[in-house]
């Protein structure tokens, strides 16, 4: 691989890796796993860099992250909804922002993997419903229903969070 390709790739990767890592973090909720997923996606892009450079390498990387996350969920057999999220330490919660993050983390943990993925892609990555359906390999109807279900579940499972940020339209 040529030196200029390497330079172009690393420049692109440094410009996008933070966003990609944070998408992975939102999807899986685990920093270590998010690092693995991000690395895996960037390696996949690097392998195809000559072909992807002029196309949409970020879209490709995001799909890799989502697909790998889904595969991880399947491996862990976590397609069923957790009745209760695992207990978590709450030491050092001294400000509302931290409290808000913890509540969101716990609320996200109550979503099914698919609901979580739809929420992240729609509202963090700002994808349209059609784009989300294509990334997740599901139908448009599934994206609609899962979005609705995820928002309902967030509201239901985190009333304190809703109070903290203010209630609004469904």
């Amino acid at each position: 691989m040529a030196a200029d390709e390497r330079a172009a790739f690393t420049a692109w990767a440094r410009a996008h890796q933070v966003r990609l890592f944070r998408t992975a973090y939102l999807l899986c909720g685990d920093r270590g796993a998010a690092e693995d997923l991000t690395q895996e996606a960037l390696i996949a892009v690097a392998r195809r860099w000559p072909r992807l450079a002029d196309q949409d390498p970020y879209g490709y990387a995001r799909r890799t992250v989502v697909n790998a996350t889904v595969s991880r969920w399947r491996r862990l057999r976590r397609e069923v909804l957790l009745a209760e999220p695992p207990d978590r330490a709450a030491d050092g919660l001294t400000d509302a922002l931290t409290l808000q993050r913890v509540m969101l983390r716990d609320a996200l943990a109550r979503l099914t993997p698919k609901q979580r993925a739809v929420l992240v892609l729609r509202f963090y990555d700002d994808l349209s419903e059609a784009q989300t359906a294509a990334v997740l390999h599901v139908s448009l109807g599934t994206v609609k229903s899962q979005t609705n279900a995820a928002l309902h579940r967030l509201r239901d499972s985190a009333p304190d969070l809703a109070d903290l940020i203010g209630r609004s339209n469904p």
């Binding site: 691989m1 390497r6 790739f9 690393t10 990767a13 440094r14 890796q17 933070v18 890592f21 944070r22 998408t23 973090y25 939102l26 920093r31 998010a34 690092e35 991000t38 690395q39 960037l42 390696i43 892009v45 690097a46 922002l97 808000q100 993050r101 969101l104 983390r105 929420l119 992240v120 509202f123 963090y124 700002d126 928002l151 967030l154 509201r155 969070l161 809703a162 940020i165 203010g166 209630r167 609004s168 339209n169 469904p170």
Partner: peptide, 29 residues
């Protein structure tokens, strides 16, 4: 819970996670 609120919450939550530098390792691998 409006769409914009959801966006703000997710963004704030995600931004709290620091990302290491993957670029060189990815190219080498």
């Amino acid at each position: 819970m409006s769409d914009s609120r959801i966006r703000e919450l997710l963004t704030d939550f995600a931004d709290s996670a620091e990302a290491p530098d993957f670029a060189e390792r990815a190219w080498s691998a």
